[in-house]
Design a protein around this nucleic acid. Structure first.
Length: 560
RNA sequence: UGGGGCGUAGCCAAGCGGUAAGGCAUCGGCCUUUGGAGCCGACACGCGCAGGUUCGAAUCCUGCCGCCCCAGCCA
């Protein structure tokens, strides 16, 4: 690529690339890849990697491939490849026609293996899995050579071909690279390249009964695709010498592997194993449950692609293992939704208010702004009637000093409407409040001169007779500990589940919401951002997922 | 105790020998018909610790300490 731009905002990966461009190692070419294994749904950690890989390609005028690392048929499935593609597209990235699969290279990989065998660099081993482990040695003691290590090239060639043709039972033989059993790096102690495995592969079907291991497949796949920078996570750092060894032995294009620290976020579990358990044990409502840190879960919860990309940008890229504060993720959605979500009013916990001096049976249409952050979003009308609902928590019979809301004898403003005064509190036999009797000041409708009168607070409200009922799902963290993996003796992460992570309620919302489209985002004024559920919502009976609450300084003050 | 990494604020993260960017969080104030948003301000005499080199060190050297990863025919 000619004249790649040097990005202003830097990180160590870009610095390495800049250095390569300076020395011309890859002829100023930048070609990355995102290599998911299709054995689970993508999560926010993958989003970081996707943004990094596609982002870097974009910045340097290069390309990023999508490559499924499908070398282990027992765990992989097309369901996962479909979801992965959908999620990457949703995030806003495009791999164009570069959709590849490691399984596309099985034949080439096989040829490469033959080359290593011919060069005396690989051999067919008949040690069992257990024996291989014993021969490998330990962290502090060197391993021992396999008794099969010195077979002739001819014998190895013959045996390997017979492995492929299915002459041997599963697990009975492996093809191993001849590196160094005394290496202090265990990955170099004659690593396995192929295992015999009779499993149906989601793409190659039953064509193969030998499958390449990650180490043998990954670097060569990168090389075949002309990848320049193979970005992966820290745990592969120890594999880099082997990555380098394979491409060097083969004498093929040599990409640079670069490792960065994977993303961790407080209150979230990120391992595919744990996420799978949550799904399989029915603890959540599938991979896209709005409490899941999966991309599909975040999407259903109401996160936007821009907010996730912004988050990925803000967490940075480094080699230090870190755990990002959940508050940053929440900040990113709020920022995006604040700018784009239309405001509406919805009362989550209704308390009836009767405006005693407002005519019975009359409906007044009042004008409400759709989004104060965006003039072009216009206005809508909301019906005002004699009977209303306000939020139960917006009234207190005996309020503390800093309470700005409604109380006996106090005035408060109803958003877009009038200033009302609480005249009487009606209770049932148990003493709980069932209704408030208020009067309104007809001169204070929004827009009127008298409307500027100072009152302590403004409440959201809804017409009791015109509002519609809607299901609202209030979500909280799935886990009650910042580190869900921090458990007591003998317990696993499930012991840290938050029993109140989902609360389903019936709320009263303004009538304009009746036909709200699934996936559409709203701000329920003073309460939070809500998104119409894509699974359970139906025209006329909307279901809302609470994406995130609004920042609530009152709640903070109240707690102290 | 072999090898590979990493330590800068509560959480991230720039910095690359010339005297500690930025974001989130937090705390003040202003403004506000969302206790939202916005705006202004505060927030490391200090860069894991201890020595050393230098006119000058978070940056270079030495030695410690702490944390993470590796003994799958998973990726």
């Amino acid at each position: 690529m000619a004249n790649p731009e040097t990005p202003v905002q830097t990180n160590f990966v870009k610095q390495i690339i800049n250095e390569h461009n300076k020395t011309g190692r890859f002829a100023n070419r930048v070609h990355t890849r995102f290599p998911p294994e299709p054995n689970g749904y993508l999560h926010i950690g993958h989003a970081k990697s996707i943004c990094l890989n596609f982002g870097i390609a974009q910045e340097y005028g290069g390309q990023c491939n999508l490559r499924f690392d499908d070398t282990n048929p027992v765990k992989e499935d097309v369901e996962y490849v479909d979801s992965i593609k959908e999620d990457i597209r949703w995030l806003g990235f495009d791999w164009e026609d570069r959709e590849y699969y490691a399984s596309d290279y099985f034949e080439t990989l096989y040829e490469y293996a033959l080359t290593l065998i011919r060069d005396g660099k690989a051999f067919v081993c008949e040690l069992t899995a257990e024996e291989i482990r014993q021969y490998r040695g330990t962290l502090t003691e060197p391993g021992k050579n396999s008794p099969y290590r010195d077979r002739s090239v001819e014998e190895n060639l013959d045996l390997f071909q017979r492995m492929r043709s299915g002459e041997f039972p599963d697990g009975s033989r492996t093809l191993r690279a001849k590196v160094d059993m005394a290496s202090p790096n265990l990955n170099m102690r004659d690593p396995v390249m192929y295992r015999i495995l009779r499993a149906h592969h989601h793409r190659t079907g039953d064509a193969w009964c030998i499958y390449p291991t990650y180490d043998w497949a990954h670097g060569q796949s990168d090389s075949i695709e002309g990848i320049t920078h193979s970005i992966c996570t820290l745990e592969f750092e120890d594999h880099r010498p082997l990555y380098d060894w394979y491409v060097d032995q083969l004498g093929i294009h040599h990409p640079q592997q670069i490792e960065f620290a994977r993303l961790n976020v407080t209150y979230l579990v990120m391992s595919k194993r744990k996420l799978l358990r949550l799904v399989q044990e029915g603890i959540v409502d599938g991979w896209d449950d709005p409490r899941m840190p999966t991309i599909s879960g975040l999407r259903r919860r109401g996160f936007t692609p821009a907010s996730v990309r912004d988050f990925a940008e803000r967490v940075g890229v480094a080699k230090k293992e870190s755990t990002i504060d959940m508050a940053l993720l929440e900040h990113c959605v709020r920022e995006d939704l604040n700018a784009h979500a239309w405001r509406v009013m919805g009362v989550l916990d209704p308390l009836k208010v009767v405006i005693t001096n407002f005519p019975e049976g009359e409906t007044e249409q009042l004008e409400a702004v759709n989004n104060p952050e965006d003039e072009s979003s216009g206005v809508r009308s909301v019906p005002f009637t004699r009977e209303l609902y306000i939020e139960r928590e917006d009234f207190m019979e005996d309020p503390p000093g800093k309470f700005f809301r409604l109380a006996p004898g106090r005035e408060v403003r109803l958003r877009y409407a009038y200033i009302i005064k609480c005249e009487e509190v009606i209770k049932d036999a148990d003493g709980s409040i069932t209704e408030l009797r208020c009067t309104y000041d007809a001169e204070t409708r929004s827009g009127m001169p008298q409307a500027n009168r100072k009152v302590k607070g403004t409440l959201h409200w809804v017409s009791a007779t015109e509002a519609i009922e809607a299901e609202v799902r209030l979500y909280d963290q799935l886990f009650s500990k910042e580190d869900p993996g921090d458990t007591d003796e003998g317990l696993d992460f499930l012991s840290n589940l938050n029993p109140d992570s989902l609360q389903v309620i019936r709320a009263m919302v303004e009538p304009s919401l009746a036909e709200a489209m699934p996936g559409k985002h709203f701000q329920f004024e003073r309460k939070g951002y809500f998104t119409v559920d894509t699974r359970y919502s139906k025209p006329g009976t909307p279901v809302f997922n609470r994406t995130v609450t609004l920042r609530d300084t009152w709640a903070k003050v109240n707690k102290q």
